[in-house]
């Protein structure tokens, strides 16, 4: 169902999709047929060199929970204008059920020179009345001047600052875009959810909460040579929360080395004059973390999250995320100071 030549017509793609549903319906066994599900349009912008199979597997994994019309745009660094498209379906049969559930997928190949043409192609392909999320997998694409027109279609643009060469610069670029009104998400922030939730849970206990205004020092250890965006985000989020209880601690970043670079290995909140930290979370082996607070030690699992797990979380928040926006502003300030 590919479109020939260097241009594509959205009407033709929509027609191809209608045909696809008819043929899927005919293939369906008996009266059960197929069930079409859609809760959003998910546009994926990726380099042509990006692992197509991995993207496909991630989308397939996301579909049961976030059934979407997926539009995957693969970019070629080429000056000649050129676009091509094909449509197909992702189907799955829930265990023990008779009916297949299917989502549609459109794959578009575009040269860099065609980026200005994309808005007119993608806009008619989005599903009416449902949110549009743009997942930009390449920093290069985000920085293409014409990319902002494509991004304007989306309610939210998901990036990964860990893919940028310079984390501090990435935070600056993203903060500028956010300040200009763009709704963004950063998978580096998403990676912190479990860390943040553990910290929040520690201070649900009133005995621990009473210590919070005493925090005078925050230590965040990481594995990268340069401080990663995750560390800046966590520091900014902690500072924001602590300011609300009247604490204004000093932040120390420490590199412990290791892989992956963005991964944190320790966060510790301490108070002047106290030998023991008020609270600490330290990665031990593998995905395990040791949580210490108030003399109690507990274990938690902090698995490294893959693209599927990160996107699964982000897609469940189609609107703005005020906590992230505050953390981004704070992180950019810390990184660029």
């Amino acid at each position: 169902m590919g479109s020939a030549g260097g241009t594509i017509a959205p009407d033709r793609i929509l027609h191809d999709m209608a045909d696809l549903w008819v043929s899927l319906g005919k293939e369906g066994e008996g009266d059960a047929g197929v069930l079409r599900a859609c809760s959003m349009t998910l546009v994926v912008a990726a380099e042509e060199s990006d692992d197509a199979q991995a993207i496909g597997e991630t989308l397939a994994a996301l579909m049961p929970e976030h059934p979407s019309r997926a539009i995957v745009i693969r970019f070629r660094a080429e000056d000649r204008r050129g676009l091509a498209a094909r449509v197909f379906a992702q189907c799955w049969m829930p265990f023990g059920h008779r009916q297949q559930i299917c989502c549609e997928q459109i794959e578009i190949t575009a040269s860099d020179a065609s980026v200005p043409d994309l808005e007119a192609v993608v806009l008619p392909l989005t599903v009416p009345d449902l949110p549009v999320i743009l997942w930009c997998r390449s920093p290069r694409l985000f920085e293409l001047p014409a990319f902002s027109e494509l991004a304007a279609i989306a309610q939210k643009v998901v990036l990964d600052s860990a893919a940028f060469a310079d984390p501090a610069a990435a935070l600056g670029v993203m903060n500028s875009a956010a300040s200009a009104g763009r709704s963004l998400a950063d998978l580096s922030w998403t990676r912190l959810t479990r860390w943040r939730e553990l910290i929040a849970q520690i201070f649900e206990n009133r005995a621990q909460l009473a210590n919070l205004p005493l925090v005078s020092h925050i230590l965040i250890a990481h594995r990268a040579a340069a401080t990663p965006a995750t560390a800046y985000y966590l520091a900014a989020w902690l500072l924001d929360g602590l300011a609300q209880v009247g604490a204004h601690p000093r932040v120390e970043f420490r590199s412990d080395g290791g892989e992956p670079a963005w991964r944190l290995s320790l966060v510790e909140l301490s108070a002047q004059g106290r030998p023991d930290a008020i609270a600490s979370i330290a990665l031990t082996e593998g995905a395990a973390a040791e949580v210490k607070a108030g003399g109690l030690v507990s274990k938690a699992l902090l698995p490294a999250l893959n693209d599927y797990a990160l996107m699964r979380e982000e897609l469940s928040i189609p609107g703005r995320d005020p906590a992230f926006e505050r953390a981004l502003a704070g992180a950019a300030k810390l990184a660029l100071s």
Partner: peptide
């Protein structure tokens, strides 16, 4: 009384 400033109802349980 102090309120826990770290809660994030959008993402946390």
């Amino acid at each position: 009384s102090l309120e826990n400033p770290f809660q994030d109802p959008l993402r946390f349980e």
